[in-house]
Design a protein around this nucleic acid. Structure first.
Lengths: 114, 114
DNA sequence: TCCTGTTATCGTTGATCTACGATAGACGGT
DNA sequence: ACCGTCTATCGTAGATCAACGATAACAGGA
């Protein structure tokens, strides 16, 4: 996506040096964007809210709560899991999902710091 | 972002009419997702942070701060403007962008309520 | 072992995103 | 009026997303 080095461009750009340019390379921007993207879909917002409100929930219940096919919900769960916002632990034939509080707090602190 | 197929397809789908639409309307989820989507990209995160830190900024400065083409930055600014997070006012040949505090607060409250 | 129920993954289709260069439009200065 | 600067939009190409049905993987019970 953004592959060109911003730092290189910064180094070469001296003309507007009147400001103490603090346009940080922002390694956190990537992480922030990834977390924001995890909840950048109504279904995923609902899933996160559901899990926050219920502490834990098996996949089937989540599917029943959304007007989406099971495979679609599973994909959303995968995205949320990859972002770290939720966790899933196998419980027999079922999978129980729950919120991952540290990552949720990280998202909150990112937004709060805006 | 996703409203098209869900609603349209549900209306046209008669075969699973046994259970009334149980989809949680959750109008706020849509709005929340839209706001989250606005900052779900590293470049847009940086733009928002830049504007928060500088109160106001003309388009050209923002372009200079990112390793992206002017047209690409303009598109990101358009997305942010459509989300309501930022505003742009014409100032002669330039356009001065600034944060829209109420919308930013709305995003913050959404996240805080999680 | 076979079957049942639960969940993840595959494969596909259409829509959207992201990036860029090229170009058009608007404004101020000469 | 002309020209140069600044910004938005157009058009395009490639990548990714979102949705679905079909199918595979997996654990537990008959």
């Amino acid at each position: 996506m953004v592959k060109r080095s911003s730092t290189a461009k910064l180094a070469a750009k001296k003309k507007c040096s009147t400001d103490p340019v603090k346009l940080t390379p922002d390694p956190t921007a990537e992480e922030f964007a990834k977390l924001a993207w995890a909840i950048a879909h109504p279904a995923r917002v609902q899933i996160v809210r559901l899990l926050i409100g219920r502490e834990a929930c098996v996949c089937g219940e989540i599917v029943d709560c959304l007007p989406l096919a099971q495979s679609t919900v599973s994909q959303h769960l995968k995205i949320l899991k990859e972002s770290g916002l939720i966790q899933g632990e196998v419980d027999g034939p079922k999978v129980c999902y729950c919120i991952n509080p540290p990552q949720l707090e990280k998202l909150k602190s990112f937004v709060k710091a805006l």
